[in-house]
Design a protein around this nucleic acid. Sequence first.
DNA 1: ATGAAAGCGCTAACAA
DNA 2: TTGTTAGCGCTTTCAT
Lengths: 347, 347
Amino acid sequence: MSSSQPPAGRESRVTMKQVAALAGVGIKTVSRVLNNEPNVSVKTAERVHDAVRALDYQLDLQAGSLRRIDGRTRTLGLLVGSVDNPFSGAIHRAVEDAAVGRGIAVFASSLDDDPRREESAVRAFLQRRVDGLILTTARRRPDYVTSLGDRGIPAVFVDRRPIDVDLDSVTSDNREAAHRATTHLVARGHRRIALLADRSDLQTADERRQGFLDAVGRAGIPTTETVTVMDLHDANSAEAAVAALLSSDRPPTAIFSAQNLITVGAVHALRAAGAQRSIALIGFDDIPLADLLEPGVTVVAQDPYEIGRVAVEHVFSRLEGYAGPARHTVVPTTLIARGSGEIEPAR
Amino acid sequence: MSSSQPPAGRESRVTMKQVAALAGVGIKTVSRVLNNEPNVSVKTAERVHDAVRALDYQLDLQAGSLRRIDGRTRTLGLLVGSVDNPFSGAIHRAVEDAAVGRGIAVFASSLDDDPRREESAVRAFLQRRVDGLILTTARRRPDYVTSLGDRGIPAVFVDRRPIDVDLDSVTSDNREAAHRATTHLVARGHRRIALLADRSDLQTADERRQGFLDAVGRAGIPTTETVTVMDLHDANSAEAAVAALLSSDRPPTAIFSAQNLITVGAVHALRAAGAQRSIALIGFDDIPLADLLEPGVTVVAQDPYEIGRVAVEHVFSRLEGYAGPARHTVVPTTLIARGSGEIEPAR
DNA sequence: ATGAAAGCGCTAACAA
DNA sequence: TTGTTAGCGCTTTCAT
């Protein structure tokens, strides 16, 4: 149970040539068999398979793609917010589900909303010659997109659509969804509403703010009545921000938390202040177990699996020849009323 | 904004040769510059960098690894339960965090506790010549491990340790943790305790059951008092199972849900029956927002980030030459009392 | 400090 | 139906 292992390295790389020798055929015949090409007799194929088993041979896809006419590596690059995040996980799963059936492997990386990480991740993907990319960007105008076009590598942006970039994208309508959430609060009589959002240089955060401002504007609520706190990025900072609001002179009667981690922080702060049944809360993005909290947390939910599913379909359609204009798919959001968003303002 | 894109394919692959020609140097000099090898004059290096920029050249790592003496692809394969799952996500994030700094990319796949998926994922990794593997297995004795050894590819098992396999592993002590959770309930006076667990052919589920049985046995509770429901795999089946228990002749006074999705199902069922404050519940694995539920959900929490962190360290140590015996790391679990596990049995 | 030639494991093109 | 040759883009080796 505890003997030592051989050192790591290319011990005894079995090659196609060795398989061919053992099977008594030419190397090209082995290639034909392993790639299911026609014109191989059943007997020969069997001999090849026997040799493959005997030597425990595994085809080298990398070497193959080097010479292959289309240069495909049967590989995709996926860049998401963070692989440790339910929203990203659902996108990832959708991509994998579509890729695995086609024999395509997926490289996954986390963005952390860091433009430098973004650049190095994309470079890492390109240097490994991925066939396609599915990207979340932290930039308004990613500068690497022109190289993608020149290389003919299909890329689809998910979650955030960069400005003036003519590549496919799959997003939610953040502005509309934020508008809907805010209107939901206004309809219950709220005027003193607080918006808590992520870094304002992120497109999604900005759009959500605009949707919020549209809605309060249309309701005729002066901006002196509302509060907006931007640049929140995690649950802790959001909790602190809400706590500060609650202990201010004129605390809000309703909160719109425009991102899932912010919602978590807001719930914590409301609980700590014992205000979870008196101050309304709507979150952007669903959070796990939101339905089991008391009150349940009302959210406008995105559909990350669907976002990933459509994105990977876009990639494959381009790989299969589609060369038309960029498609900008908007995946619908859903307002899920669970209680917290239906609280009315205290008199 | 809506012009059409070029078709996907190897349009205009820029090669090192072209960079060399433009810079007026030999191809080997370009290689030296791009790989930071010594013995290149500053002036020459500059000319190469200029040419690289002008042509927007990206090194082909795949082609390089083909000839490279150690054959490394700077690539890792990661197989987790499901990329869409917080436990897996934390492992994944830890692996990525360690890999990204070393310029190593990570292939991620989902197991879904399906042995066939496991086999095809491992084969996909091997055919892409990953330098190392971090694997969750659905088998007690994965048969592919011998090939891994022959190939000198370091592999580390996470979450579940296969029987009689002499490869590194990083796991939690499931039996001990389950014992602790069960004893926690026994100490509050519970005797009629229900265990709800995953498929009994999974090592972790089996170990958790054994820990449970140990604990009730040691407490002198006859097995006629307890109930065990195995083969639960998702929240829905768990919810149905708990609902059935609650409406039985002699419902349990406490529940030990031995997996995170089962815990979610159990919470739902207890809520539906209005029993969340009268029947005790302890879960295995932490669940998001468990602290915000009422009552808070008591759990024995694993530390998936730490599991991933140690696993990837094991892989790198082997890649860097460690050739000693297999290391079997056990990462501690933590019992987090939040209320649900401290409920006492009704008289 | 630099470059020419060989060859990594495979597929493409063509010959038999 | 099968095999032979060349060559994918790079790193190695060895020469200069």
